[in-house]
């Protein structure tokens, strides 16, 4: 199967057909357009003849950049491409599309998921794993392929959220095992906040645990007015929304711990030891050991802080803290 290098008319390409588009990067093509002007087309796109037109297998951005460079010539723009055999199969075209990108740069997680999902129409997970070095330029374990396929089944905007970093691989894997309605809940949450992987997992955990504890659906937890208010606040930065959502979920998941912790923190903040001396509560309020911390750059500072501590011995609120 060899593709032939030839020049075709841009108008003969069906730009709307993106069946082989696997790249999520709709990057600004200015640089690429400039590069094409300076150095010409180094890697010609690959196209497939289909129904008297051509559809793009690889090189979506190069073709866009080429059109951009020649936009003054309305008609008759020609471009150098590799044209597949007319009888090239769907599978062969998909392989070309994936490997031409994978051998240029590492695929992103979202691209990997998308490609695995498409390949799964032709190959089972074991075959995908076996052929992965040749297709993906890297070895994919069978278990990993299975996870990618699970995640690939997430509805929209699952992949988009993975692409933007709003949904981590682990979180996606975790929610992909849940029911449809619950998956939608989490996709909606993660499209409105921006959280690190650990925080995403914590949010999933708390919602699932509240739901199990109270025998209600995760959607009912999500529909809680306070949570809705946090998520729908358009003015709030996604990072702040994450902070508020976590606090709200923690309070719901651990109401007694939350209140006790709040009380202790209020007491601690009311004790003004001054001189940047901090009091830390016992870990998880399980031991009875409070910690006092301060820093000192030199002996004088150390002395000043110890004196502040000494003065605090008569602090009524401090005494109260130790005799609850």
């Amino acid at each position: 199967m060899s593709d032939c290098l030839c020049k075709i008319n841009i108008n003969d390409i069906d730009l709307t057909d993106e069946r082989y588009k696997i790249s999520f990067s709709n990057t600004n093509i200015d640089f690429l357009a400039r590069s094409l002007r300076e150095t010409g087309l180094i890697y010609p796109p690959i196209v497939r003849p289909l129904n008297n037109k051509f559809i793009i297998i690889s090189g979506f951005n190069r073709i866009r950049a080429h059109i951009h460079n020649n936009r003054v010539h309305n008609n008759g723009i020609k471009i150098l491409v590799y044209k597949t055999e007319p009888d090239a199969t769907d599978y062969q075209c998909l392989l070309k599309s994936i490997s031409s990108l994978a051998f240029q740069r590492s695929l992103t997680l979202a691209e990997l998921i998308l490609c695995t999902k498409r390949l799964h129409e032709f190959l089972d997970k074991q075959q995908i794993a076996q052929k992965s070095p040749a297709i993906f330029n890297t070895e994919l374990a069978e278990g990993f392929v299975r996870d990618l396929l699970f995640i690939g089944d997430l509805p929209d905007p699952g992949l988009q959220l993975i692409h933007t970093g709003n949904l981590s691989f682990k979180s996606a894997k975790r929610i992909s095992l849940l029911g449809k309605e619950t998956i939608k809940v989490f996709l909606d949450i993660f499209s409105k906040i921006h959280a690190s992987q650990n925080k995403q997992l914590e949010i999933i955990l708390y919602i699932m645990e509240i739901s199990a504890r109270d025998a209600i659906k995760p959607k009912a937890v999500y529909m809680n007015q306070e949570i809705q208010d946090i998520l729908s606040d358009e003015k709030k930065d996604p990072g702040l929304k994450t902070r508020d959502l976590r606090a709200c979920l923690f309070e719901q998941r651990f109401p007694i711990v939350f209140k006790a912790h709040q009380r202790v923190m209020e007491k601690i903040t009311s004790i003004k030891l001054g001189n940047n001396i901090k009091i830390l509560p016992p870990k998880n309020l399980d031991s009875q050991d409070y910690s006092i911390s301060f820093t000192a750059k030199n002996y004088n500072q150390f002395q000043a802080k110890v004196q502040s501590l000494h003065k605090s011995l008569e602090n009524k609120k401090l005494k109260e803290l130790f005799t609850p």
Binding site: I210, A212, I256, L285, D286
Partner: peptide, 12 residues
Amino acid sequence: STIPYGEFILGL
């Protein structure tokens, strides 16, 4: 079972 969903903390 709902027993894992009590108010647990990590002990020492």
